[in-house]
Amino acid sequence: MRKNVNLISWGLILTLINLVGSLWIGTLIDVAAYLMVYVGASRMKGVNPLFRQAGGLALTVILLSVINAFLPGDPEALLAEMPAWAWGFDLLGMFVGFALVYAVCEGTRREAEKEGEQELERKMKIGWQLYIVPSALAAAITPFALNFGEQLGLTLMWLAAALLSLVAMISIIVGLRRAGRDLRFDSAGLNES
């Protein structure tokens, strides 16, 4: 089971270090990363229904990443240069990504709660909350750049939100590594590989 949790955490690490996410090679890295999350989560579907959901969400993210690679225009395009329907895909991808992080965090938190690992339980709970608030804020701020340009206040707010979101994701990954080390994941229907 440790291997599966590690697969999920390595998948998430890969998405973090994928600095060329908008290029073709970046799409391939993303697909590989979410495939790892999918495989890890799918193998843990018997542990907790949230991991089954995480598997499905990871597959959706893979599908959206592939579609995104075929969206018209420059992959580095600003929102201004993208058609409205491409915005829809971006939004959907963002939402599914948030839901995936929730499923992984909450699934792990519940297992920690079951096994009396209170510190880990708290870590996953706070990690998720710390992640979703700045991530949603950054997502909401992004389109304001269309109309108000690179204003210092907006840019700083976006950078602060993105940085907080990154820190939260690192904290979640650290929590997952710890879960792989400390939790037994011995729920019914265990699907150890």
């Binding site: 959901q53 948030f98 929730y102 949603a136």
Partner: peptide, 30 residues
Amino acid sequence: MTGKDKKVYAILTAILLAVAASWGLNGVYF
């Protein structure tokens, strides 16, 4: 799906709607 999960997904949906509204309104204004 537990009641808590439903609540969280409802919150996520609300976030999605808020973000979509931000994108949509900015798109219209643009």
